[in-house]
């Protein structure tokens, strides 16, 4: 009888935990202070990359650590808004009204002035069949920039000078 009394004793503090946990609900910490120049630049519709002082590699999107040199790159360099398509593939999304699967280009852009590529989306109006490696593209900013990577709405294609030259020679 003594034991039962012990169990029934009211505890002042208990611990609660949810019975379910969704895998994608994981949070990731990120050093926003070191990234602040990049995010501020995005808000001003400018692009900057991080240059490693040891190997001179300019990374865009900027990397906090240079894997080759095991150093912290700290030299911000300005990049142009233009770049070229390094490689591409397609995502297929189902149109809910028609049920058709449409191809949306997924591209890796090498920003002019950077050595690495950025995986992103092309203007959804551009047909997948028209994309090619080496295609010049330019950033399309969102109207209201907030200072994060989503400020880049998508990449838009621009006139390709090499293609024009081809047509002139023909």
């Amino acid at each position: 009888m003594v034991r039962l009394e012990y169990i029934k004793k009211e505890y002042e503090k208990t611990r609660q935990m949810p019975g379910k946990w969704y895998l994608t609900s994981c949070r990731y910490k990120f050093n926003i202070t070191r990234f602040q120049p990049f995010l501020s630049a995005l808000k001003e519709k400018r692009l900057i990359g991080l240059k490693c002082r040891s190997c001179n590699t300019v990374s865009f999107p900027p990397k906090l650590v240079c894997g080759k040199c095991l150093t912290r790159p700290d030299q911000w360099v300005s990049l142009r808004e233009t770049g070229i398509v390094a490689t591409f593939t397609a995502n297929y999304m189902k149109d809910e009204t028609t049920g058709e699967a449409n191809a949306f280009p997924v591209i890796a852009v090498r920003q002019d002035g950077a050595d690495t590529t950025y995986l992103t989306q092309l203007n959804p109006k551009v047909k997948f069949e028209d994309v090619y490696v080496g295609m010049p593209v330019k950033i399309k900013w969102k109207d209201n920039t907030e200072g994060n990577l989503n400020d880049i709405d998508y990449y838009d294609c621009i006139d390709d000078p090499t293609q024009k030259m081809d047509s002139l020679t023909k």
Binding site: A86, T87, F88, T89, N91, V106, T120, V133
Partner: peptide
Amino acid sequence: PTFERPLEIINDLTAGGLQMRAYMN
């Protein structure tokens, strides 16, 4: 989680597509 996941455009299949295109080109 910083650069790829928010866009939801990259998984093992799209990565393979990018790789094949890069090799072919």
